[in-house]
Amino acid sequence: MKRGGSFFWGVILGTMAGLIMGILLAPRKEEKIKNILGKKTEELRDNLQEISKKIGQKVHRIKSDFEARWKKNKIEKEKMDQVEDELGT
């Protein structure tokens, strides 16, 4: 009976030791995972900001080109209207 009792106490003590070690080591793993996730989130945010900046530049360029063409066409239309008025057509 003594051997059975020793085995039982060994299982209980081993379980408790494993539980304590798990509790002590788990926060470190969670902290490491949080650090990794934090870094990846920061990288993603930086990448999205860079992409947003590039898109903004392209939109500005397209808008400027459109405005320049609009003004050019408007001036050409005004010139055509002037010529038509001079010709009386």
Rank of each mutant, 00 (worst) to 15 (best):
R3W: 02
G4M: 08
G4N: 12
G4T: 04
G4H: 07
G5L: 15
F8Y: 04
F8G: 05
W9P: 08
W9G: 11
G10C: 01
V11K: 14
V11D: 09
I12V: 09
G14L: 04
A17W: 14
A17H: 12
G18Y: 12
G18E: 02
G18A: 11
G18Q: 05
L19W: 14
L19V: 04
M21F: 08
M21S: 06
I23C: 05
L24M: 10
L25Q: 01
A26D: 09
P27R: 00
K29M: 15
K29A: 07
K29N: 13
E31A: 05
I33M: 12
K34I: 07
K34N: 09
N35K: 13
L37R: 04
K39E: 15
T41E: 15
T41P: 01
E42A: 15
L44D: 09
L44I: 06
R45K: 12
R45G: 12
D46N: 04
N47L: 12
N47S: 09
L48H: 11
L48R: 07
L48D: 05
Q49W: 11
E50D: 07
S52L: 10
K53S: 15
K53H: 13
K53G: 13
K54V: 00
I55Y: 05
I55D: 00
I55A: 02
H60R: 10
H60W: 13
R61V: 15
K63I: 11
K63G: 06
S64C: 10
A68V: 02
R69G: 14
W70H: 10
K72T: 06
K72I: 13
K74T: 05
I75Q: 04
I75A: 01
E76A: 06
K77N: 08
K79E: 11
K79H: 13
M80Y: 14
D81W: 04
D81E: 10
Q82D: 08
Q82L: 12
Q82T: 10
V83R: 02
E84D: 14
E84P: 00
E84L: 13
D85C: 01
E86H: 05
E86K: 04
L87Q: 07
